[in-house]
């Protein structure tokens, strides 16, 4: 019993450590749109690592990725919801439908909006864009690792600030990029 408890405590401690290591890059990513930041994986997965960081009781999440979400719900205390009610959506492309129905909050409570975490292969291929907005010094050119349709759908969701959705992209190379609702994306 005691050994068990110690093992559980240690595992909790490890996850808490992972969470604090990963929070800073994710915070920097949303603060500096279009730039890449390194994160650590959990069980070889960036999606799992961010799920551990972001999920807690009273949070709803959704995913179109086939992993054992029941276990993650049990560990974090978060609940699974639909793509139109979830606070966090863990996705792989195609996820156009998910973007279309994700919550944008309302004018009084714009924070009650969804955040999408999209798993991508790398940041070298995709759509070349120019970004501007808060967090970006003047302009920034980069490659967004998603389809043009998704970029258009995102712009549509974010057309009336402060309502909108926030995005993160996670690559298999342990990198994260953020795209808050404030970022203007111009396809080059």
């Amino acid at each position: 019993m005691n050994e068990n408890q110690n093992a559980i405590n240690k595992r909790h401690g490890d996850i808490e450590r992972l969470n604090r290591i990963n929070f800073r890059p994710i915070l920097q990513a949303i603060s500096r749109p279009g730039s890449l930041h390194s994160i650590e994986f959990h069980d070889n997965s960036g999606i799992l690592a961010t799920a551990m960081l972001l999920l807690y009781p009273s949070i709803y999440f959704y995913s179109n990725i086939d992993i054992s979400w029941d276990l993650i719900a049990a560990v974090t205390g978060a609940s699974q919801g639909g793509s139109n009610t979830a606070d966090y959506l863990f996705c792989r492309e195609p996820c156009l439908k998910e973007i279309e129905v994700a919550k944008t909050g309302d004018t009084e409570n714009p924070e009650k909006a969804s955040t999408l975490l999209i798993e991508v292969n790398n940041f070298s291929s995709g759509v070349d864009v120019q970004l501007s907005g808060p967090g970006i010094k003047n302009m920034k050119q980069c490659t967004l690792p998603i389809s043009k349709e998704l970029i258009t759908a995102r712009a549509e969701k974010n057309k009336s600030f402060p309502m909108g959705i926030d995005l993160f992209f996670l690559s298999s190379k342990k990198e994260i990029m953020g795209l808050p609702r404030t970022t203007k994306v111009e396809i080059l």
């Binding site: 969470n19 604090r20 929070f23 404030t182």
Partner: peptide
């Protein structure tokens, strides 16, 4: 570590991400 329990930290972290995404709100 750092006094506050993990779920409380998670809630603060979530809200910080929102705060940055909606500057000044």
């Amino acid at each position: 570590f750092a006094f506050i329990d993990e779920d409380a930290k998670k809630e603060i972290r979530r809200n910080l991400l929102k705060a940055v995404a909606i500057p000044g709100y």
